[in-house]
Design a protein around this nucleic acid. Sequence first.
DNA 1: CCTCTTATTGAGACTGAGTCTTGACTAACG
DNA 2: CGTTAGTCAAGACTCAGTCTCAATAAGAGG
Lengths: 144, 144
Amino acid sequence: MSTHVHNQTLDLAATLERLGARMTAPRRRLAALMERWDGAFSPEELTAALPDVGRATVYRTVKLLTEAGTLCRTALPDGTPRYSVDQPHHHHHLVCVACGRVEPFDDPALERAVRNTAAGARGRLVGHRVELYHRCERCAEGAW
Amino acid sequence: MSTHVHNQTLDLAATLERLGARMTAPRRRLAALMERWDGAFSPEELTAALPDVGRATVYRTVKLLTEAGTLCRTALPDGTPRYSVDQPHHHHHLVCVACGRVEPFDDPALERAVRNTAAGARGRLVGHRVELYHRCERCAEGAW
DNA sequence: CCTCTTATTGAGACTGAGTCTTGACTAACG
DNA sequence: CGTTAGTCAAGACTCAGTCTCAATAAGAGG
């Protein structure tokens, strides 16, 4: 049993292993940062937090982890990207319109409703996305 | 009764009136184009279709109409913008993952489910968005 | 350990969407 | 008509995201 609890959520080593990719310092630093990040983030924010890691590397790593299914990408209606460490199961997003924080949630009743709606739609359904916009407790208090 | 049926959906004249803005040739051309456009569009597509209208004008007009509530903006998960002539009532989007076409839909049962989920969420809910991704009939046939 | 191969890196050039600036134009109204 | 303020097109600018390339270092095999 080691002293440090290593990143279980991202499981970087396993992911890279699976992809046949190398474990490098920038990747480790990025993974650690995402892990301890509170909520969702954009590549820009990661770059700002790690100025000595090249922009290209940040974008490459985020893309890599997204394709590996480790990260989950979404976009606000204005197109701003939000990445978050993916929940292994199907889920949706609760987005704070003030601070941009994204929390995952899921609700079986909602899923059922979506499936029912889908049944009525023409064509082959391949997926769906639900986003709830709110003002989180923190922002509601602060009256931003 | 005039020979031409004018744009009822966009109701450009009324919208501009309401904003105290002027009715100009580029705006008329853009409105007509959006009106006859099949599905959702991006500013880029409008620009390509009307090469002699300046890019800035296209973006300004789209922004104007969006703020006026005449257009409705959304973004695919990859951030690509999709604008569509807004339905006056609350609705959601059925997006074809192959051709990018967006159709509005609404479903009272789904709305109820969202409202129920919202009731369980912390903070003040200010809105929601549901997107169903499918392969539309046209694309399903064509096997794109 | 050492060496070799090859993936990965950071710097910076590049791209393309979207915005801003500017001088010319014109809609709207008297 | 004449005036004037909103709007126009062109093109400079910005900024996120991608690509190129020479230098570096993982990690496998000796």
